[in-house]
């Protein structure tokens, strides 16, 4: 039962990852850095320094702007480097995970204890980064590791696919992995006040795709790239899917899957809508 659960989780993860790969080209496997020797060399130096090794990485992947330098195959041991400043933005090292034999004898630590470890690690980051990240209360556990996640918010609105996570081993307390997203835009350049209402955005989604909204789904606001986007969900012929409607000009920002994980229960209520001159012109046309 437990095994099939993990197989299911793995398949779901794989499916969503593959969907992301083909949907956005922001996640690419086995990339070559040979086109830029300086970039390659700096990525390798940063990764080796972090991992305290002189071993050459065996391969590189792209993970939404970050370059994963793998020291072992199968996502077991890698450092994630930001190619803009060659700083380490993440890592995973499965070698730090509990071993199979001690696991049976060892007792699992409470989730709160794992959280304290994750929180201490989070506190090491610069104040300007921490101030934009908010802890999401649900802690998931997969295969003996706890997963703690902070999402980026600007003016109370979640920023799509920008987050920080720490993965703590539930048996030995080691940090197995962590990752900080590159913040694509500073908060000063992000617009958070929509010019169209949730209900208008919902109608734009329904009319553009000639499909009804999914019942009981309340549109909510997210930041996508650097603008507010209303997320609606419509009932397609085969399955429901999400539509992002730009809150500034009403254009379609994305369709299909969400551009990042949104915490359960996320809502945006009492959103102030300020119609721009453009929107006023459109409405009066």
């Amino acid at each position: 039962m437990r095994k099939s659960f993990f197989i299911l989780i793995f398949l779901l993860f794989l499916f969503s990852f593959i969907a992301a790969v083909y949907a956005h080209s922001l996640y690419l496997f086995n990339i070559s850095l040979d086109f830029d020797k300086g970039l390659k060399s700096n990525v390798i130096i940063a990764a080796q320094k972090f991992a305290n090794t002189s071993k050459e990485p065996v391969s590189f992947d792209l993970d939404k702007g970050l370059i994963m330098a793998h020291f072992e195959p199968d996502q077991r041991n890698y450092a994630e480097i930001n190619p803009l400043n060659y700083e380490v933005y993440g890592m995973r090292n499965e070698n730090l995970k509990h071993q199979i034999v001690p696991q049976s004898a060892a007792s699992k630590m409470p989730k709160q204890e794992g959280y304290e470890t994750a929180k201490r690690f989070f506190e090491k980051f610069p104040a300007n980064v921490k101030s934009e990240l908010k802890y999401g209360a649900d802690v998931s556990e997969v295969d003996g590791t706890y997963f703690y996640k902070w999402n980026r918010y600007v003016d109370g609105i979640i920023v799509a696919d920008e987050s920080f996570f720490v993965n703590v081993d539930a048996y030995n307390g080691n940090i197995i992995a962590w990752r900080l997203s590159i913040f694509d835009y500073p908060k000063e350049s992000i617009k958070t006040v929509p010019a169209i209402s949730a209900n208008v955005a919902k109608k734009v989604a329904e009319l553009s795709f000639n499909a009804p909204s999914v019942q009981n789904f309340e549109p909510y606001l997210i930041i996508y790239t650097k603008e507010p986007v209303w997320v609606s969900k419509i009932q397609g012929q085969l399955y429901p899917y999400y539509i992002g409607v730009n809150g500034i000009d009403g254009s379609i920002a994305f369709t299909g899957t969400l551009p990042g994980e949104i915490p359960d229960g996320y809502k945006t209520e009492n959103v102030k809508v300020v119609e721009t001159e453009l929107i006023k012109q459109i409405y009066s046309s």
């Binding site: 169209i196 209402s197 209900n199 208008v200 955005a201 919902k202 109608k203 734009v204 329904e206 009319l207 553009s208 000009d249 009403g250 254009s251 379609i252 929107i279 459109i282 409405y283 046309s285």
Partner: peptide, 17 residues
């Protein structure tokens, strides 16, 4: 009437784009 207004506004936005 509010729903009709929203639909009318949405149509205008779609036409604009």
């Amino acid at each position: 009437s509010s729903q009709d207004q929203d639909a009318s506004k949405a149509k205008k936005i779609i036409d604009y784009h």
